[in-house]
Write a protein that binds this DNA or RNA. Sequence first.
DNA 1: CTATAATGTGACCAAGCGGTCATGTGACTT
DNA 2: AAGTCACATGACCGCTTGGTCACATTATAG
Lengths: 223, 223
Amino acid sequence: MPKQTFFNLPEEKQKRIIDLAMDEFASHPYSKASLSRVVTRAGIAKGSMYQYFEDKKDLYIYLFDLAAREKMVYIQNHKGEENDNFYTALERILLAGTQFNLEHPKLSRIISNIMEPSGELVLQEIFERSKHMSYQYIHEMLSQAQENGSVRKDIDVSLAAYMLYSILGTGLLEYLLDVLNVSKHELLSDPEVSKRLNPEQIRSIISNTVNFIRNGLEGKSHD
Amino acid sequence: MPKQTFFNLPEEKQKRIIDLAMDEFASHPYSKASLSRVVTRAGIAKGSMYQYFEDKKDLYIYLFDLAAREKMVYIQNHKGEENDNFYTALERILLAGTQFNLEHPKLSRIISNIMEPSGELVLQEIFERSKHMSYQYIHEMLSQAQENGSVRKDIDVSLAAYMLYSILGTGLLEYLLDVLNVSKHELLSDPEVSKRLNPEQIRSIISNTVNFIRNGLEGKSHD
DNA sequence: CTATAATGTGACCAAGCGGTCATGTGACTT
DNA sequence: AAGTCACATGACCGCTTGGTCACATTATAG
């Protein structure tokens, strides 16, 4: 956690520091992100940074936490009714997650940058923990869906949870950016770019994704 | 490419250097891999390394190339007849790829470590190129399968290719290691660990994976 | 034995990093 | 006016990195 000193700062200054730090940790994996660069850009002294945060880890964990919370809230707000059909719910969550990634590319990258092996076991633990949470969540959804018949009984729920996790985690965003002809770098540096994207196209891609998850490559299509 | 000097070396020495370099680049992403560490372990002078290779990139690209070739050959040798059913072929390829990853964890890691953003555009290009190749290969398989009816017509082949790519690339190995209760680190440091794994279990997981890809979560199972 | 070419070497360099600390500054108390 | 406390500062430290280079060593050849 940041030191009290940080929270005593005028909000504007807090925000400026956090913003620039987010920039840095979004555009570089943890081990390459540089505090020196952040303080230079923020126009403050190196020493000040260490009056606000314990160390580099402390700062990154704080940023990660902010980003992860914001994403959870975002998805929670967009996920619709509790009693939705499993596939409808899945589609909503996918859509919400994707929208978040497009609207908040920095936060999205800060979250996903925790995957990089840094040698710091604290970070690895956080990564494991957050992975476990997502995985658990999907697993739970799948189990329920299996009970009420939306998912056939002979599906191995653990395996399926992992597959969904890997599709949701990396595959879909990559594909979207590819199709929309936008590089990750562009998305990061130009916050306007996501507004140029065609929402209908995104919807359609996600709908196709869920259709694939539901019916596979060989099965019949639904409408 | 390595300099001629490197190829003039006694084969034993070449091999020792390559082995240790593989160790290093498998256990650290490119930007954190250290030549200093390699030369120390290899018992040679820093300067010698630069008589063998142009620079760090040169070395890594060479290692990547070796690993990628070996993996391609491995899969080629295990993929079975040309006129296989699409899903059978997919299963064979998946199995071969997985076996390779388990039997040659170092090579596997060197290959996947190219994904890390390093700031070096040469590496990024190589990454893009290799991604494109895999993607293209899957795309081609899918298109053929769609023509002969193994894949339904309303599947978006590009999207499906991406999904398969992300499942094959990361999801499956992660899941396997998780189920088999082996950490990536263990797999790297102990070459014997892969022999303790139950081949039947692996087969079964891959079979389930293909079944999921084929029939989705809702559809009927095949045997 | 000598000359030439090929290899090996490790001290050295500049750059970058995370992190420290003695010192300075300004506001609020007493 | 004196003292106290929170905050700001940037030179500085130790360390590691990729990469260089003048020199030593060895092998080959005449």
